[in-house]
Design a binder for these strands. Sequence first.
RNA 1: GGCCCGUUGGUGAAGUGGUUGAACACACAUGCCUUUCACGCAUGCAUUCAUGGGUUCAAAUCCCGUACGGGUCACCA
Length: 544
Amino acid sequence: MTREEYANILIPNVEHTREYYEEKYQKRNLSEGAMVLRIGPSPTGSVHIGTLYQAIVAEGFARQSNGISFLRIEDTDQKREVEDGVNLILKSLENYDIHFNESPLLGGEYGPYIQSERKDIYQAFVKDLIIKDLAYPSFLTEEEKADITAAQTKSKGRIGYFGPWAAKERAMMMEEVLEKVKLGIPYVIRLKSNGDFENKIVVEDAIKGHVEFPENDMDIVILKRDGLPTYHFAHAVDDTLMHTTHVTRGDEWLSSVPVHIDLFKTLGFAPPIYAHLATIQKESDGRRRKISKRKDPEANVLYYSEKGIPKEAVKIYLMTLANSNFEEWMIANPNENIENFKLDFSHMSTSGALFDMEKLLNISRNYLSKISAEEMYQKTLNWALKYNPEFYETLKKNKEISIQTLNIERESTKPRKDFAMYSEVEAGLWYMYQEKFEPTEYEWQKITDKEEIKTILNTYMNEFFCETDTEEEWFSNVKSCCDKLGYASNMKEYKQNPEKFKGNVADVSTVIRVALTSKSRTPNLYDIIRILGKEEILRRIKKI
RNA sequence: GGCCCGUUGGUGAAGUGGUUGAACACACAUGCCUUUCACGCAUGCAUUCAUGGGUUCAAAUCCCGUACGGGUCACCA
């Protein structure tokens, strides 16, 4: 029996050969320096913040080098796959305006872009390795594996399937193997590693720099019982056939690099450039760890949608984590599109950053303060449609007043920074709506005496209020009102002799403010008065 | 346990042997401005770069040890 016939029995029904696929996926025709990067999420649910981070990085490098970025769904673990997982990923990334050149939806010359649809490709390469005696079937049961690990732990040796531990199965005769196959004993295919643990290999990681490892000598599984490849094998085959130039991925993969180098060598491939990104971390109970979807709500990108944290802010924040010089660049180029920032591996952190919600919200506040009131309204409306239907209706009904209110002190060089999330907008707008103004309490400050409040409001409305006043006129009228009632209209004078006055202009303004809005903190009172209009003001004052 | 990576204020960090008395941003504190709030402005916040040694005229930067943190050692990615 030839090795080819042998391989055919071990991996039956493989349509094409390795040569066929190598011929099919020709080198990409790209300009000098063009980078090809990929992002390979598993369809295990909604997108992780780390996946978004990697997507931004991969897409950015590709775009800036006139290269290619593509999305490849890594669904070789069918147990973990969730319903509609592929769609969830596609939608979330689209929502963040990350545009790949190739993906399962867009297609492309190097597809399929879903690993489970590439089964034949992997098997063709595995078959080739078996023919060349570089891979072999392994019938090891769970118990046998556990026994090996136990023995290795006991003798304080290295853990894994290598050297003496693998010798027996490595040396198994074809006949013996075929007999087991005939009996229906399940098996996987393992790599027959030629590595030597005593040898050192050196890898130049684009981020971590010079890293030295012992050579891999583990006979790792390359094809699982279900006929699908392991991550390691799929990585070597796919990134070669898809002509990836730079593999960006989380640094939890760093210690797998020797395995991957071994695989590339055995397959006769040239390895790509690796760039291991530090993972985003989270601190809990005084310990740092990788941010996790299971434990940390903010690890899930859906969280930001729900809270109404703008996607633009999330992207900016992730950019500050990606490149330490990004923030400075952004301050120096306030009107530039962030996509024009040139990413650079040398400015990427080698150690994982703690996720900083405060910082994100600050970025968000700045971002939202700079967009137009119209845009702010529209974005809030979009958010509310999905997450706050009641507020959506109110917003829709009160479009003009909402935009006017959102515009208070906005179109200046130093706009207000009231909102970090769309979900906060309601708290800043409700008191402006006629039908919603049913305050449960008034936040009176220094002046709380009912009679005094009444006096102030009546005097102001009857003698000093004029609907057509400019802001200067308006405020000077407020001051006149103060003079009449024994309050200081000039703050400096008041500070010099506070005992000479009942209070000051701030106290009087506050009474008017609280009477009209129920709140002690609001944007500019003059603008609020203009927006509400005389009729509504009178109604609100009468209410008190 | 083996292997690997990391360690500069509360946080992200700049820093590549000598204008660093350690930038910048967030947070925090105080003050100023001010009709509230927000904005803005000013000041403060690491006598020191995990730690011990070494090299050097000179070290956060180079070398070695130690400690601590993280990752990995699956038919998961």
